[in-house]
Computed example of a mutant assay.
Amino acid sequence: MRDDPPLDYYLIFAAAGDRGRGALPSVILVEEFLLRGDHTAAGIAGVEWTPATGAWRDRPALSRAIRTDALLRERVVPVSRADAADAYTMLGGGELPQEARIRAFFHDCQPLPAEDPLDLGSPGDEKRLYRILFAGDLHERGLARLRSALRLEPAGDQADPRAHVVGTATATAAGHTVTWELRRIGAGIAWCLDVTVNPGPGPDPGIGTLLHHHRQAIREQGLIPVTIERFA
């Protein structure tokens, strides 16, 4: 039996700041990252529900837009399933369908490019490097929460807005060493999490689970995941 990870939920408001004024969203968007066997992203499936139609429909173009359109992104709020369920009920939809039912509405997806990992190591070096890219910006409170959630140690001058690496952490499991770094890309443009896996002799340390957990932790602070790439 397939054990699917939870779906991602977003509320889209008619205007930026509507959530703070207590307004209801105009769209509920539900997404699923489609992963390859090496944990990289092959595409994003997305369906929307609106009170105007009262129906679920494929919207891969909307999934693309919230990642490329900065003005639209100001109206988008990543939320938990519980928050999405509350909004769905208040908008007149009743009880939010179970995730297996929502998945049945996925018929198309926004494809993501596939490339072979670059060989950045020496012969015999099996190191793997993943990058999870996020659109949007982090406020100081969100960054502080992430430092706690991802157990990040400060890196560089945190007061310098030009500092790219804002925190690092390392863990060891079954002889494998995993290091992750949270990086700022530009100013208010994007962020990424680089995860380096140095394989050991033990069983698989569950890198897929770690990537999912870290992606969700960052998404909870308002950033929108764009893709998961592998460079080595």
Rank of each mutant, 00 (worst) to 15 (best):
D4M: 11
P6R: 14
Y10C: 02
L11H: 09
I12T: 04
R19D: 14
V30Q: 03
E31V: 00
F33R: 10
G37C: 12
D38M: 09
H39Y: 14
E48A: 15
P51D: 12
S63L: 12
R64W: 07
R67W: 03
E74M: 13
V77Y: 13
V79C: 07
R81C: 03
M90G: 04
G92R: 09
A100K: 09
I102H: 02
R103A: 03
A104M: 06
P123T: 11
G124K: 15
D125A: 11
E126S: 13
A135G: 11
E140Y: 10
A144C: 01
L150M: 15
L150T: 02
R151P: 01
R151M: 08
G156M: 09
D160M: 06
P161S: 11
A163S: 14
A163K: 06
H164P: 03
G167P: 04
A171I: 07
A174Y: 13
W180T: 07
L182I: 00
G186P: 08
G186Q: 10
T196W: 04
V197H: 12
V197F: 06
N198H: 09
P199F: 05
P199H: 07
P203L: 03
P203R: 05
P203W: 05
D204F: 04
P205T: 06
P205G: 11
G206C: 02
R215K: 11
Q216R: 12
Q221F: 00
G222T: 07
L223D: 02
V226C: 03
R230S: 11
R230Q: 15
